[in-house]
């Protein structure tokens, strides 16, 4: 501190010398506004500055402690409260959303199972009906087939009988043609043909 003052004082001395020269040269006078050394060390102004400084500090202190600080701390507390509430509300909403999603998923799974069940039932029903129809159709087909077989057998039998008859007639005619004048034993021819046809 003393150093600073001394330096400034020296500067001032040099400056003062120049100033004197200047005054001689131009004839101006700075004396009234010139700093005498460091104005900071002008003790005559200390009581003034100290008085007003204390007043200033008291003013700032009262403004702060009576108005500004309570206000700001209230605002900050309010903001903190709002934030906490909002966060809690957000948490609650999030939980609700999760619950809703879960119930939706459950409902979806239930619906899916129900649909599966209904589809299965329908499928079974259709299968059963189909089976009934198939059985019916099979029975009809079997009936038709046996009927056809019977007719075929009938026709076959008819055809065999006709063939036998034709064979007997033909055989009799052949015998008659081969042995004219001879009496044809109808029964013998018939027995012979029958034996041949039956294998």
């Amino acid at each position: 501190m003393a150093d600073e003052a001394e330096n400034a004082g020296q500067g001032e001395n040099a400056h003062g010398g120049l100033e004197a020269g200047l005054e001689v040269a131009i004839g101006t006078d700075h004396g009234a506004t010139d700093a005498a050394g460091m104005p900071q060390l002008d003790f005559a102004t200390f009581d003034n500055q100290i008085f007003w400084l204390i007043l200033t500090l008291l003013a700032i202190f009262f403004v702060l402690s009576k108005i500004a600080l309570p206000r700001i701390s209230a605002v900050i507390a309010e903001r903190q409260g709002t934030l906490t509430n909002d966060l809690a509300a957000a948490e609650d909403l999030k939980r609700q959303a999760a619950e809703a999603e879960e119930s939706y998923n459950t409902a979806l799974a239930n619906a899916r199972a129900e649909a599966q069940k209904i589809a299965q039932e329908t499928r079974d029903e259709i299968q059963a009906q189909l089976q009934v129809e198939i059985d019916k159709a099979d029975a009809q087909i079997a009936a038709r087939a046996s009927e056809g077989e019977a007719r075929i057998a009938e026709i076959e039998a008819g055809a065999l009988a006709t063939a036998e008859e034709v064979a007997r007639d033909v055989a009799a005619e052949i015998v008659r043609a081969l042995a004219p004048g001879q009496d044809v034993d109808a029964d013998a021819v018939s027995a012979a043909v029958t034996a041949r046809v039956r294998g």
Binding site: A8, L18, G21, H30, T33, D34, A35, P39, Q40, N48
Partner: peptide, 17 residues
């Protein structure tokens, strides 16, 4: 220039009460 008396700086004047 200073030697001729043209420059006049008073850096401490601003602190005068």
């Amino acid at each position: 220039d200073d030697y001729e008396g043209g420059l006049s700086i008073h850096p401490m004047d601003q602190f005068i009460v």
